[in-house]
């Protein structure tokens, strides 16, 4: 019961401070950016500005170029015009085809930021186009996809798991320390310490407030961005487990310090380290062991599963179970430490 009284009081206090409103505002800003700035899917089409020497049969060449539908062909009259257009349109390349000494000369004009790999691909593609015209040429390419049933999220939805990870799951990592040090500064923690209530009741109440905040921001964001394209049962289970884990880490770090200023360095380093997992999330081919061992790595992919039509339920709930157990362990450890340091 004392926990309940603590929780109600903490909820009252948190709604009278601005942290919870900042969290909700952040969620709404994120929703607005996703809905009104970020397209459903990013377009990978690029413009190709081409100049074909008048001595060549330009219709056939244009047809050949247009057969590659990854770019829009725009014919121009000179090389200078290509250079001008490339400066105006940074998502484009240029090509100039001319006849010199009875040989076709291809000049590819790039922006300069392209990697060597990309340049090599362009060069090899041009050669391959030439080879195709040889009479003995025969295509022998066979593409095999290993994960044939893999689903792909829209680019907009694909960003949601990272927001849920950083803003909803790790809400408590930052803010629980703020609440505890606010109590220390006000001295109310000392007043609490001379009542029969227990330290775990105080800490669990703070976790409860963080959980409500995390669930609130997570559900608002998901509802507004994904609508019904999410499994809310899995989402709530994941949000609870990951939020408890994030807050328990925040409590644990706070137990080593006596002021928010001193604690902030360690909290920031922890948060930044956990955020590294987002690089592997957006570039799945980059997943060194140092990133895979971060708790945020499986969390991000578990959140992704929530939005798939056929989610890997075993993966989601192994994360839920794992992070709930870890949260409990860190909570007990924090409680043990706070018993000695809460009022010192």
């Amino acid at each position: 019961m004392k926990f309940a009284h603590n929780f109600i009081k903490d909820m009252k206090v948190s709604f009278k401070t601005f942290y919870i409103y900042i969290e909700i505002l952040m969620a709404l800003i994120f929703v607005a950016i996703l809905l009104f700035v970020v397209p459903e899917n990013f377009s990978s089409d690029i413009n190709m500005y081409a100049h074909i020497d008048s001595s060549l049969q330009s219709n056939e060449i244009v047809e050949a170029l247009e057969s590659d539908n990854s770019s829009n062909i725009i014919l121009l009259d000179s090389m200078d015009e290509i250079k001008y257009m490339l400066e105006e349109d940074r998502n484009s390349i240029g090509i100039s085809i001319s006849m010199v000494d009875q040989k076709i000369l291809y000049n590819v004009i790039l922006q300069g930021y392209e990697s060597q790999k990309y340049r090599n691909i362009i060069e090899k593609s041009l050669i391959a186009e030439g080879i195709k015209d040889l009479p003995e040429y025969g295509s022998n390419t066979n593409i095999v996809t290993l994960a044939s049933s893999s689903e792909r999220l829209s680019d907009r939805l694909n960003m949601l798991p990272i927001f849920l990870l950083l803003n909803s799951a790790f809400t408590g990592l930052f803010i629980v320390a703020t609440y505890i040090f606010m109590d220390k500064e006000e001295g109310t923690i000392r007043a609490f310490a001379v009542t029969p209530a227990k330290v775990w009741e105080y800490l669990l109440s703070k976790m409860g407030v963080m959980l409500v905040t995390g669930l609130l921001t997570g559900l608002i964001t998901t509802l507004l961005v994904a609508g019904l394209k999410a499994n809310y049962l899995h989402l709530i289970a994941l949000l609870i487990a990951t939020n408890l884990f994030g807050t328990s880490i925040g409590l644990f770090i706070s137990s080593f310090y006596d002021s928010i200023m001193k604690a902030m360095g360690a909290i920031l380093v922890t948060f930044m380290t956990l955020a590294f997992a987002t690089t592997s999330y957006f570039m799945p081919s980059f997943n060194p062991i140092i990133i895979r061992i971060l708790p945020s790595y499986p969390m991000a992919f578990a959140f992704r599963e929530v939005f798939l039509e056929n989610p890997d339920i075993a993966y989601i709930y192994s994360n839920v179970a794992g992070f709930t157990v870890l949260a409990a362990l860190f909570f007990l450890w924090s409680n043990h430490r706070f018993k000695k340091t809460l009022t010192v």
Partner: peptide, 13 residues
């Protein structure tokens, strides 16, 4: 019962 020298009450309540 403990009355502290520095008052310590919840300002928001």
């Amino acid at each position: 019962g403990v009355s502290f020298e520095q008052s310590n009450v919840y300002g928001k309540l």
